[in-house]
């Protein structure tokens, strides 16, 4: 589904990613762990198309297409979803309306009929239990006045509604207390299926107790320095990131 080959990325002339190779198959869940500043968020942003990142070498292929040639909204319509580490507040734009615009943009792209108010409400009702989404969060402006946990729930709720093929979860666990983490992780798990791939970027092993990955990769200084199964995450937790730096 996703093929990253020798990807080099710079920001303002500083090389952040220094040759990433990663292959994500359909239905697989990959965890990418690493210390702060290792390039984890850069990887999420480059896959979703944020401005300000220069690809200096390498390629990213998504479902056989050159991902780096696609606009951000085109990628989303093709099934890529980024759950933000810091969800953006948008004053004055109603959360429900925003979601409806997103769902219909995607449906239009796919050549499907746009949902009317009724059809959309039905979809919302169906998805709300997944992250125990509260009604009042839907009537407010996007993420405005939401707690940290509510913002992350809103991200996973959007994911549930938009049904991506490839979900990128960028530090979805950061800053969450254990109750919020459970709700968010349960939401993610219920969205796991054989057709949906996920790349879970995290600093902490704790998230992987709830979302069990098929593969774990360790990112350090812009490179994947070690890959393995979920036991690698436990080993990392035990020994710390410095263990890898020494062994690398």
């Amino acid at each position: 589904m996703l093929e990253i080959k020798d990807l080099h990325v710079s920001v303002d002339g500083n090389e952040i990613l220094k040759g990433i190779n990663l292959s994500v198959g359909t239905g697989e869940v990959h965890a990418i762990m690493g210390p702060n500043g290792s390039g984890k968020s850069t990887l999420s942003y480059i896959l979703s198309g944020k401005d300000g990142y220069d690809v200096t070498a390498g390629s990213v292929t998504y479902e056989g297409k050159d991902l780096l040639e696609m606009e951000t909204d085109e990628r989303a319509c093709e099934g890529i979803f980024l759950a933000f580490q810091y969800p953006v507040e948008i004053p004055g734009v109603n959360n429900t309306y925003f979601l409806k615009a997103a769902v219909n943009a995607k449906r239009k792209y796919q050549g499907l009929e746009e949902l009317d108010a009724m059809g959309f409400m039905k979809l919302m009702k169906e998805k709300m239990p997944i992250v125990e989404m509260k009604q009042d969060l839907l009537t407010r402006s996007v993420n405005v006045g939401f707690s940290g946990g509510e913002k992350k729930r809103n991200e996973i709720f959007q994911m549930a509604v938009l049904e991506p093929k490839l979900a990128l979860l960028d530090e979805t666990d950061s800053g969450l207390d254990i109750d919020a983490l459970r709700i968010v992780a349960n939401g993610v798990n219920s969205l796991r299926n054989e057709e949906r791939s996920m790349v879970v970027v995290t600093h902490y092993q704790r998230l992987l107790d709830y979302i069990e990955p098929d593969f774990v990769h360790v990112l350090s200084d812009g490179k994947i320095i070690k890959s393995g199964d979920k036991s690698l995450a436990l080993e990392l937790e035990d020994k710390g990131y410095s263990w890898l730096d020494k062994s690398a």
């Binding site: 909204d73 989303a76 953006v88 997103a102 943009a105 995607k106 792209y109 996007v142 959007q158």
Partner: peptide, 12 residues
């Protein structure tokens, strides 16, 4: 904000 909206499939 622009990036957030576009990352959800909404065109520029």
């Amino acid at each position: 904000m622009m990036f957030y909206l576009r990352s959800r499939g909404i065109d520029y």
